[in-house]
Design a protein around this nucleic acid. Sequence first.
DNA 1: ACAAAATTAGAACAATTGTTCTAATTTTGT
DNA 2: ACAAAATTAGAACAATTGTTCTAATTTTGT
Lengths: 193, 193
Amino acid sequence: MNTKEKIVAAALDVYNREGIRTVTTRQIAREMGISAGNLHYHFKHTEDIIFTIFGQLQRDYDEMVALFDKKDLVLRELLQEFINGSYRLINKYRFIFVNFVEVCAWIPAIGESYRDLVMRREEQFVSLFRYYAELGMFRQDIPIAILKGFIRQIFIISDFWYSSFAVLGGRCQSDALEDYRQTIEVAFYPYLT
Amino acid sequence: MNTKEKIVAAALDVYNREGIRTVTTRQIAREMGISAGNLHYHFKHTEDIIFTIFGQLQRDYDEMVALFDKKDLVLRELLQEFINGSYRLINKYRFIFVNFVEVCAWIPAIGESYRDLVMRREEQFVSLFRYYAELGMFRQDIPIAILKGFIRQIFIISDFWYSSFAVLGGRCQSDALEDYRQTIEVAFYPYLT
DNA sequence: ACAAAATTAGAACAATTGTTCTAATTTTGT
DNA sequence: ACAAAATTAGAACAATTGTTCTAATTTTGT
């Protein structure tokens, strides 16, 4: 791992731990035992670090989705894979989810990139649900408007479940995954056959 | 409106507009045409302003709920009142919702106060749904675990819908309410009879 | 009317911030 | 082996921050 990668890893760690509000580039540098000057040699601006982290999140996400496609799963299996996989990402990059609006206002390219991702995701979900509806695993009597609303719901829950969990005072890791699983499953419950 | 109230109003306005990340007490003071020294005469610390705003949000919320209780509504009417009322609050205090985790980490009293509110809200919802289930307006066959999960879902959506809307690039006010209404209604859809 | 208290503006302070600059050291390609 | 390029530490900079201090002005209670 070269210095640039180490900076990204350290920044992710510190941001997750303390939030973007109070963390400084000096603190990130100190934490990893390099000078602030050196950090800014590799990343001229703080935004550049965060933008790099966001890029990593997107690559991780695409990788996860590609993995699902290969496996050809039953809907309930896919749901479990989705829960485990998305939880891992949400937890790994939680500071971004916790500060999503501010980050997008600060670095507009992240907002644009996210909106692209969401549009792709939405289509994937629609065709996925159609596929499982034909296999009799997903309800067939759902109007498209409701279906899109349901997908929107899943996005809100998966993007902001961590924020809610954190605000409610959740700490323990094992509780966290169970809480996330429960929340997503309940959202799906009325739509499964 | 005395100076103290004016400061709170101006702060709410500026925070909603620009987010807590970049706004300074100097900027709030400048915006309302008073000196920074004067602002800090009324609020020694920045946290005190935010804590006051959060107190206002809670009073507004309690007021809204009390209004519902008086009216003795049919479930679908109540749902509409809830959507309109909660939207008004979410929009009025949007900067808090957008920075909920950071605000709670910064000012622990807000987190504690919110957790109290959520516990009260949860009980209210359970007994409300029981009441409407007896009247045949809400499904009676929902296990309590699912019901609690559904309530959790509603909280996540109402607390973070704005964040999602903002990140998706939503701007226009009229679109916003419709989007919120649609999202909440779809969440309720499978549980109404 | 007038003393005491409350409010105000503006200067001042000490700390911190992101970033740049400089000079030294290390690594790389040949 | 050695010149050029990349990396590093640490000092330096200019701007900004929340907050305090001081002295003036305004309001309040009697």
